[in-house]
Simulated assay, not measured.
Amino acid sequence: MELISGLPEDVARDCLIRVSYQQFPAVASVCKGWKTEIERPEFRRRRRTAKQSQKILVTVQSKNIASEKPGLLMKSTTNPVYRLSVLEPEKGLWSELPMPPEFASGLPMFCQIAGVGYDLVVMGGWDPDSWKPSNSVFVYNFMSAKWRRGPDMPGGPRAFFACASDQDRTVYVAGGHDEEKNALRSAFAYDVASDEWVPLPDMATERDECKAVFRHGRLCVVGGYCTEMQGRFGRSAEVFDVATWRWGPLEEEFLDDAACPRTCVDGGDDSEGRVMLMCRGGDVVALQGETWRTVAKVPGEIRNVACVGAWEGALLLVGSSGFGEPHMGFLLGLKTGSWAKLKSPEDFTGHVQSGCLLEI
Rank of each mutant, 00 (worst) to 15 (best):
D14I: 11
Y118M: 13
V285L: 00
N304S: 13
E209V: 13
G289H: 11
L315N: 00
S20A: 11
G115D: 00
V305H: 02
D166N: 15
R246C: 04
G156H: 05
L316A: 04
A296M: 02
K35R: 15
A306D: 11
G322P: 11
T227W: 09
S236L: 06
V242N: 04
V284T: 01
N79P: 09
R18W: 06
D14Y: 15
V352S: 02
Q230N: 14
A243P: 00
G117L: 00
A258N: 13
D202E: 15
L357P: 04
S130F: 05
K132V: 03
P199T: 08
G322C: 12
G267I: 07
A296Q: 02
P128Y: 03
P299M: 04
P8G: 04
F161G: 01
R274M: 12
S130N: 05
Q23N: 11
F24G: 00
P299D: 03
L72H: 10
D119Q: 13
T291L: 05
G117T: 01
S67E: 04
N304K: 15
F188E: 09
G33N: 13
D266Y: 14
R13Q: 15
E290C: 14
F142D: 00
W311C: 06
R149P: 01
P98Q: 04
R18V: 04
G156A: 01
E253W: 12
S344K: 10
P199E: 10
